[in-house]
Design a protein around this nucleic acid. Structure first.
Lengths: 227, 227
DNA sequence: TTCATTTTTTGATAAAAGTCAAAATATGGC
DNA sequence: GCCATATTTTGACTTTTATCAAAAAATGAA
């Protein structure tokens, strides 16, 4: 394994601290290397996404703007009533955003696995208290940035500017699809649709959470699965 | 009535051709004035949205890029299988985007009244055949632009660049809300939610279409309304 | 590994929403 | 304004999904 791990290789990132440094000539600790790996994964992500280069100066700006944060399983990133201050890039792990109604029933609005973004867009854009909770479903490592700092990077770094344009389009496409699924399909069709489009969710999230994401009860999902 | 009509004053726009020119000294036809009104409403829209100016040169670029199109009631703008080539600004009238499944059941993904945008984002971004129909619910006037031309304007006109950034955020906020509504509320709650957030829809769209937008049957909506 | 805790499954029943058919009402194109 | 056409309402009945309770299975922390 090289010091530079890929985004999708979760084990590579999380186990780095347990392995000896590959280069014996290095004076740097494995913790420092792990930190470098994490930022490198973000640089790779932007380069791959945009096909644009990032100068060492750009990388320094990005490194300073994105703050690394570790979340334990079930730890909250945002709780209902908080103003969501950051947009988060998931380096490894899994997050969810969900609401809880008067009866205590949860509704999962979105999941984010490694290489995806998570925020309460409503709260972060309008700087109003969130109606949602965001928490870590697994032990996770994330890179956070405030909207103001992201805006500043956008103005300075062409790759970030391009990334935001491309990402915005992708968001429009995926949300249009999700709305269509929610209003036009019954429980069984929504389940089949999720199986096809996000089989990985079934490996990473509990049936309870999947059911909530589909807008059905866990008992109903269990019965659909029996067929 | 002045030559320059407002966006929301639908009658003002549609009746222009039936009225004598206000300025008797003008050599321009009422049809030409109507055309000017339409583009001016778009310029006003961008200026209001972004609080940035548009130079006469900017206005010329925008005028050349956005093509005016009139749609009769029930006329298709996009049919399933077409590649959606344009992003549309609704000057007056009302459009909807909807799918039709194997059984002929319609599902309305979105409505657009005057001052709103309409496109099949999935098709227009990926240039793949659309899974939806877009048609005019009322006689409508729209301004169309291709994604490539919009991209070119974005690079040349700061107000357009800023508009796209702001609009993207709004889309993220509104779609997150719609997804939450769809998965976490029952039929009655979704109906109440729409009454609060889009009372104007009930004035402009049939119960059939509203029901389809809410993901319920017209009979169910009729029964909810009786309460 | 054990064991307390959480998650999933199963069964019985209730509530919500859909289906089909027909009548009442509204509408828009001439 | 008329009238064919489309839309909305109503009723009887079916299907789907939710609810509640309890058992079975899985999971994770010590």
């Amino acid at each position: 394994m090289t010091a530079r791990s890929t985004l999708n290789d979760q084990a590579a990132v999380t186990e780095t601290t347990e392995l000896p440094a590959v280069k014996s000539s290095s004076f740097r600790s494995t913790a420092e290397e792990h930190r470098d790996d994490i930022y490198n994964s973000l640089f790779d992500y932007f380069r791959n996404y945009t096909k644009l280069p990032l100068s060492p100066f750009d990388q320094r700006l990005i490194r300073d703007a994105f703050k690394l944060k570790k979340l334990r399983r079930r730890q909250f990133l945002v709780q209902e009533g908080d103003v969501c201050k950051y947009i988060c890039f998931v380096v490894c792990g899994a997050l969810r955003i969900y609401s809880v109604n008067e009866r205590g029933q949860e509704a999962v609005v979105a999941f984010a696995l490694e290489g995806k973004w998570m925020s309460d867009w409503e709260s972060v854009v309008t700087q109003t208290p969130s109606r949602y909770h965001i928490d870590a479903v697994e032990h996770s490592e994330i890179l956070q940035i405030s909207p103001a700092e992201l805006h500043a990077l956008e103005a300075k770094i062409p790759a970030i500017d391009e990334f935001l344009r491309l990402e915005q389009r992708l968001v429009a496409v995926t949300t249009q699809k999700r709305i269509h699924t929610a209003i036009s399909m019954n429980a069984e069709e929504r389940y089949q649709d999720l199986l096809e489009n996000h089989p990985e969710y079934f490996q990473r999230f509990s049936q309870n959470m999947i059911a909530s994401y589909l807008g059905i009860k866990p008992e109903t999902l269990s019965r659909l699965r029996k067929r």
